[in-house]
Design a protein around this nucleic acid. Structure first.
Lengths: 341, 341
DNA sequence: TCACCATGCAGAAACGTATCGCCTGACCTG
DNA sequence: CAGGTCAGGCGATACGTTTCTGCATGGTGA
């Protein structure tokens, strides 16, 4: 390439990267020859020299045997989509990696930084990345992991908003369908529920199940509605809970929303067309994915301060028939509607 | 690292890669020191030296402005999931890239090969990759692109199977909801429909719309059912067609399946719970994603012959209420059930 | 005893880029 | 005309591997 243009390697590099002190004519000439030859600088060599690969990792937790369940829940799918898009917009590409600490794949790729979804309390992957000096930003509060920044929803506010919404719709005993795992989402939501119960003096009514087990979810929904102290409203923390609860309600002859108010957390628009449509809490995964990538790239490029950043993002409650005793007047409303009281 | 273990760089490399003529004792010693120091060989240097990055690209076509709509349709999401998983199982990581020919991202990453979803007739991205000597395997028949292998569904057989299924259920005039774009999926499916019509002597009844426009889909569904020569059965080529057709049928007071038989191509399990449940054609994107990656890695690693490989995969027709005049006896059946005739 | 070979390891080149500093003319200035 | 300045460009080095080749050493068979 340098030979073809009749200049030195240095000049080629400078011309293509807009550096050095070169007259516009030389730059043009080099670029033109490069174009004609279809020359592309070696990404590997550039990475080796500069220490920057332009790649960021997206680590997704794997449940059970199957190495990969991302895109299984709409949350992950949308989050990954937005993250990929945001990374690309800033010139980075996204590599999807499993959260297992199998080194053979991780060490095969030079990462400028990593997004970790829902890190565990003492996440070994995050620890290893930190040791290597790779910037890490997490989606979800990091337990004790040394991350450079994190983004999360305001889970407490979301749960409180839902409970108030249900109470305002006439619920006297609100139940919760929650998970057995100890990730922050489950933990924060559950404790928010419990503390709300304590404050308003309601006996907690909830069932736990392993969230990644679809079958267990249906059973837990059934158990919840079969209890002697059956709730007259239920909030389900996970995506499939809505249909499971609806099915269980039908089995017990409960009408929704007349006998049972229903809300679940989901990104799926299935719930717009169920019978009846179900009120859902959207965590806005797209917004989260975009933000998380922006923060990570800021850290990588040294933009902004060096102190850890934490960003709490609001959620959207999409009110539908299932949580209203009267027919809905508005389609979408924020967690706390301005005129409420 | 070499100094810490008291050996040469060569010995470290050999010990860690299982090459060279080293006694087991030396190997163990080096590995142990490496472990203790948390030493990880530089991926960039390895890539530069060997010419192998362990990365494969997944190129997804982008519709319209938004850079990214993958995971928008369940097909892409599931395909990407399976592809990622399959790649990881063989020690490769997947990089998701847009099909735009913006070089700044593509040239930033060293790819051992690329999976291209649904390449265009003369795809510029594929051409560029071919010029660079990067192996390419496509999901969907390549038009005139120089790919090393491709995988696709047997679209003709699928459409014929559906038409026969509908005819067997009593349909006299079968309509088609299809797209305006010229990708092979749309083209093959449409011509299969047209040639079937010609063979059985039915006048074709179909509507086209730009497949990526959700709104246009609903309108096209409406148009199809508003025609004077209204079909008594419809097959929709795209995922949202089912709900759109169902809504349109309701508007015109048509009962499904009594007045109108319905089938659409979709990977979404929403159609299991619509009222009534809708028969869908599944393209089995997971199988496709896995196969496509396997083939690509085979090409990369030089396994198998050098002649281009093409693999045609069957589809699954999931028969539900919407395409049967009598209540269904079986849940799932192959495109041509053995006992039919 | 000598040639030969297997064994265990090290030296050095090469991969292709980015960057530091030096070199060479041309031009200006006193 | 000597000395200084500056634009324009190049040489050399380093990034961290892999791999080819080569050098010892000790054992073995003739």
């Amino acid at each position: 390439m340098a030979a073809a243009a009749g200049v030195s390697i240095t000049t080629v590099s400078d011309a293509l990267n807009g550096k050095g002190r070169l007259p516009e004519a030389t730059r043009r000439h080099v670029r033109e020859v490069a174009d004609r030859l279809g020359y592309r600088p070696s990404a590997a060599a550039r990475t080796l020299r500069t220490g920057r690969s332009g790649l960021i990792g997206l680590t997704v937790t794997t449940y059970g045997e199957e190495p990969f369940t991302f895109t299984e829940f709409a949350y992950f799918a949308e989050m990954a989509r937005a993250a990929t898009s945001a990374a690309l917009a800033r010139g980075y590409a996204l590599v999807i990696l499993p959260a297992t600490s199998r080194h053979d794949v991780w060490s095969n790729v030079a990462l400028d930084g990593t997004v970790v979804i829902d890190p565990a309390e003492h996440d070994p992957v995050v620890a290893e990345l930190a040791r290597q000096g790779v910037p890490v930003v997490s989606d979800g509060r990091p337990g004790n992991c040394p991350v450079h920044a994190w983004v999360d929803n305001d889970h407490e506010a979301a749960v409180l908003g839902i409970l108030e919404h249900l109470a305002a719709a006439g619920a006297r005993r609100i139940g919760l369908l929650t998970g057995t795992s100890t990730d922050t989402y489950t933990r924060l939501s559950t404790t928010a529920y419990l503390s709300w119960c304590e404050r308003v003096g309601q006996e907690p009514v909830y069932e736990c199940y392993p969230a990644h087990d679809a079958c267990a979810g249906a059973i837990a929904a059934d158990r919840l509605l079969a209890r002697p102290d059956r709730p007259d409203a239920v909030y389900g923390l996970f995506d499939p809970n809505g249909t499971d609860l609806l099915a269980a309600a039908r089995r017990y002859g409960l009408r929704v929303p007349e006998d049972l108010l229903l809300v679940c957390c989901s990104e799926s628009d299935v719930y717009a067309t169920t019978e009846p449509p179900i009120t859902t809490l959207s965590l806005k995964p797209g917004r989260i994915g975009t933000t998380v990538v922006q923060l990570l790239i800021d850290v990588i490029e040294g933009v902004g301060g060096t102190q850890p950043i934490q960003q709490v993002m609001p959620t959207d409650l999409i009110v539908r028939t299932s949580s209203q005793r009267r027919p809905p007047r508005v389609k979408v409303s924020p967690p706390r509607s301005p005129g409420a009281g």
